[in-house]
Amino acid sequence: MKNKKLLSLPYLIWMIGFTVIPLILILWYGFVDSTGAFTWDNILAIFRSEHLKPLGISLALSAASTVLCLLIGYPLALILRKAHIKKSGLIIFVFILPMWMNFLLRTYAWLNLLDDGGLILNIAQALGFRGNIVGTNGAILLGMVYNYLPFMILPLHNSISAIDDNVLNAARDLGANETQVNTRVILPLSVPGIISGVTMVFVPSLTTFVISDILGGRKVLLIGNIIEQEFSTASNWNLGSGLSLILMVFILISMAILNRYDKEGSTLA
């Protein structure tokens, strides 16, 4: 018994040192002002328009990128299920491959494609497009979908490919056509995969500041950028922490909603 407890010690230290203490620090900074006196100001600051607007854009963009990733990823996962095992391995490999490269480099590569003199902008201009791509919400959305798509595909693939063929055959035996098999059998059974995919795309999209920094031309501020700048350029840790807490609330809410569906999914399975 004693040995078992000892084994968990490294994890305990890890969790306390790198999760619990930092969280307490953020809580502390979030609820005091620069003199150390208690205040609600850092939390209520979210209601100021210069913070509400970035939060709104962040929520909208991360919701959009999650939906897009799901729309792209789900059919792919269905195809992968039907594909030969060797072939599906290759396809997954191709989708994962870019993740071996640094995330920043890939985003800078997109900047080069979309910015002045970039291949994509040149083609767009040849087709009559006027204006800039970099610095728009669209460019940021593209960056999010590109960077986070593998995080959607993998859990979807895992849950869909794990469905037993016999289950589907039983459905067909009982008279279900292919559409019904997909919507009434595969879809409910893949809910856990959808949930974890959605979480893994939505949460990093909501908190990102690098993608918007690079592809947004610093014109578009997401809530992540605001928080990052409070810590770096403005050196106002109190406000930065307060806004981080608000963001955490949004993440917790989304997790809670998703978890409810997840439970239903599990009982169905």
Binding site: N132, V134, G135, G217, R218, K219
Partner: peptide, 9 residues
Amino acid sequence: QYPLVKSYV
């Protein structure tokens, strides 16, 4: 000026 700006650099 914001709408006229290409990017902040």
